[in-house]
Design a protein around this nucleic acid. Structure first.
Length: 206
DNA sequence: CTGTTGATCTGCT
DNA sequence: GCAGATCAACAGT
């Protein structure tokens, strides 16, 4: 596996309704290249957040923090929460939407697994990137990455799937950890076996 | 300027 | 199952 083999998602993918993008991101590949190491994982959990949505950071009006959600699609919005965790969103919305982003909540590690274990201080692959805070720690994503351009950035982007994605295993559920709009089913999860991983378990690539 | 809350994770009970 | 960690953003005064 090398970087050139990863097919980056382009602007039209993100320029659609936020909820549609959230669903379609399931199975795609989150990629961060650190010191020449490719860290990659299959996105298996996402949530959509929009301008009209009381649970969203973009709700109501633009502020200094949420500004990326109002900017060009295909950027990322990284925020700091609970005094210790970072979370990453892909800015996504249709032209008629004021703001929107997709929170990437979990990935299945595929490449650079040893590097992720070091970043996390955890050995269990199942717990490397099983939540939004875990995922950014495993990938070394912090506030420095806020508003980076996923369409052009050399080191941080989202690519076509490396796994076999079975559409029937994608399910919608209510979102996690919010106090408002709890009933809306804008969380998407992949409930199938991950197959078709084209790499060695130790994350080496050729 | 102050107080509160939060799109979470971990470790202990 | 629940408390504690730890701090930036925001709303209210």
């Amino acid at each position: 596996m090398n970087k050139e083999r990863l097919i980056r998602l382009t602007e039209p993918f993100f320029a659609r309704e936020t909820v549609i993008v959230a669903r379609d991101l399931i199975g795609m590949t989150l990629v961060h290249v650190v010191n020449g190491n490719i860290l990659a994982g299959a996105i298996i959990e996402t949530e959509a957040y929009t301008f009209e949505d009381p649970a969203s950071h973009a709700y109501g009006r633009q502020t200094a923090r949420n500004a990326p959600l109002f900017g060009p699609v295909g950027r990322c919005y990284v925020y700091f929460i609970y005094g210790m965790h970072y979370c990453i969103n892909a800015v996504s919305r249709a032209p008629e939407q004021r703001a929107g982003g997709v929170l990437i909540r979990a990935v299945q590690p595929l490449l650079g697994i040893e590097y992720m274990k070091q970043n996390r201080g955890v050995d269990d692959v199942q717990r490397l990137a099983a939540g939004p805070g875990m995922l950014t720690q495993a990938f070394g994503i912090t506030k420095k990455d806020n508003n980076r351009n996923l369409l052009r950035d050399e080191t941080l982007f989202i690519a076509e799937p490396l796994i076999d994605v079975q559409e029937e295993f994608i399910k919608a559920t209510p979102r996690i950890g919010i106090s408002k709009a709890k009933e809306i089913e804008w969380r998407f999860v992949y409930n199938g076996l991950i197959t078709g991983i084209p790499v060695k378990a130790d994350g080496r690539y050729d």
